[in-house]
Amino acid sequence: MPVSEIPPPQEPGDALAAVVALRRLADQLEDAAVEEAMRAGWSWPQVAEALGVTRQAVHRKHAKRLIAAGVKLRRRSP
């Protein structure tokens, strides 16, 4: 069903809870997607540009975790 056909939640509580759930889902998706991209050989600048954030921001948020997970990180874009 297209998003436009879904009525917005009537209850404020439902709408606020949807915000919380979407943030959580987006965080989980970001962690997984960044990890997959880096494993596939993407560079930090590419991932940052694709996410629409700065390289520093994406590095700060994910570098330690990926290094600990043994992901081989590339320094430069191809």
């Binding site: 069903m1 998003v3 917005p8 939640p9 439902d14 709408a15 809870a17 949807a18 979407l22 889902l25």
Partner: peptide, 8 residues
């Protein structure tokens, strides 16, 4: 349930 309220 909360996600489904916004079609996700």
């Amino acid at each position: 349930h909360s996600l489904s309220a916004v079609g996700v």
